[in-house]
Amino acid sequence: MKSGPILSLENVVSVYGGGRSWLGRAQPEVRAVDGVTFDVQEGEALALVGESGCGKTTLAKTVLGLLRERSGNIRLDGKLVSGLTPQQARLARMTIQYVHQDPGAALDPWWTIGHTLDETLRIHAVSDRAERARRIEEMLSAVGLDSSFLRRYPHELSGGQQRRIGLARILILHPRIVILDEPTSGLDLSVQATVLGLFDELRHQFGLTYIFVSHDLSVVRRMCDRVAIMYLGRVVELGPTEPIFRAPVHSYTRALLSASPSLTPGQLDGMPSLRDDPPSPSAVPSGCGFRTRCALADRVCSAHRPALEAVVDDAANGHMAACHHWQDGLFSSADGSLAMHGVGAQ
């Protein structure tokens, strides 16, 4: 018997701006997350992938409870945890924790590492000093650091060590879901491999569920079980990693995957590239958000917003896409040429 999802989002909308400042003009409203629906199964690693402005970080913060969702339901273990004030929401979602993109900046520069870790436990009412020290020690060794780090200040740590401390700081609270925000950005390749290895190890050791926010597709392919591709606040394609990387259905996914640099030399000339820049999140096109850059776009695309539907050939895997023409897309990709506008190959 399969148990229910650990986290489930249903039509979640999250809005930036809006309202007006005192004596100021009304701020334009940005729907940074616009109707996102998906489930996360216990123990899996789900990647949220997309480019800057696609709303992946906003979605992560909404799930975490730091931002209040405008509408939609968020269920944790089947229990409704949405519709609360930010403070209440954060309390209800304490089993979800977040590792910042820049874990060094997430540490108070005036506090030693030991002090910071200790504080984390005190916030969560672990009042016994010996108990706190034991848990800190335990967690430091789990992330591969020794206790000499407790006396150091954040600026004395290397990038890799800061990531480890960032992880230790939240794992100490025994979370079940960990949101990793761009966990490898700014890390050198040789350090990145070690850190990714550590993520894998900790996930199995503590039975964690990961939500992996990233734009680095080679890392995502290596680390995650499922992928959600986001564009302008919406999920455009969702499914298991390998099928999506092997046979992407949505035009945007295909563009994104082909643009991601791989180690095979010299394919630049043959690569189709998207035209223009993405539209501003405050002026999302009607219907399908990607239609202004998509070769398959027609009148239907501007009139109706495509729903996230199962891809027929791959429905058993839970492969879904939000595109009116995904079948045409499959068809035209059969001869190897991706149907897209762009700065054509020379």
Binding site: M94, Q97, E119, I123
Partner: peptide, 15 residues
């Protein structure tokens, strides 16, 4: 970021 991180950890406003 570090203040945001503290909010995320559930630290009180006074703290």
């Amino acid at each position: 970021v570090f203040i945001e991180a503290l909010e995320g950890l559930g630290a009180s406003r006074t703290r």
